[in-house]
Design a protein around this nucleic acid. Structure first.
Length: 114
DNA sequence: GACATGACGGCAG
DNA sequence: CCTGCCGCCATGT
């Protein structure tokens, strides 16, 4: 256990806040969030932070995918199919765990919040 | 402290 | 887009 875990709480809060700002029917990537938080070299930390998102029910984690537009985190949901179903429910087409037209659906926090 | 793992990403082939 | 390799950094053993 680290001495200053409070700073991680701040990191989590930032990630959650950005994810909550993702509009329905749009998606973003771990790398984009990492870049916005200034830790772009460590996109894995964003994924790690998302692992703790289970304590935040308002975080639409299904809108956060990897740079390929693939639902890499689907296995972390209550059911492996929930992530895709939520996206399709918002109008996002998902085929074989991959978001279709990902380039147009991509939402950049850096660009949106600049 | 070494070693392995991971909801990632960039680059090369 | 896929596969392989490496860099990144916190976590667990």
């Amino acid at each position: 256990m680290r001495q200053d875990k409070s700073k991680y709480q701040n990191f989590f809060a930032d990630v959650y806040e950005v994810v909550k700002l993702v509009p329905p029917g749009r998606v973003t990537t771990y790398g984009a969030i990492a870049e916005y938080l200034g830790v772009k070299s460590s996109a894995r930390m964003v994924g790690w932070a998302m692992n703790a998102a289970h304590s935040e029910p308002d975080v639409p984690a299904h809108r956060v995918i990897n740079r390929n537009g693939i639902l890499t985190g689907k296995h972390h949901f209550f059911t492996p199919t929930l992530m895709q179903e939520l996206l399709e429910k918002e109008g996002v087409t998902v085929i074989n765990d991959k978001v279709q037209n990902f380039d147009a659906l991509f939402w950049s926090p850096t660009k949106a919040l600049e």
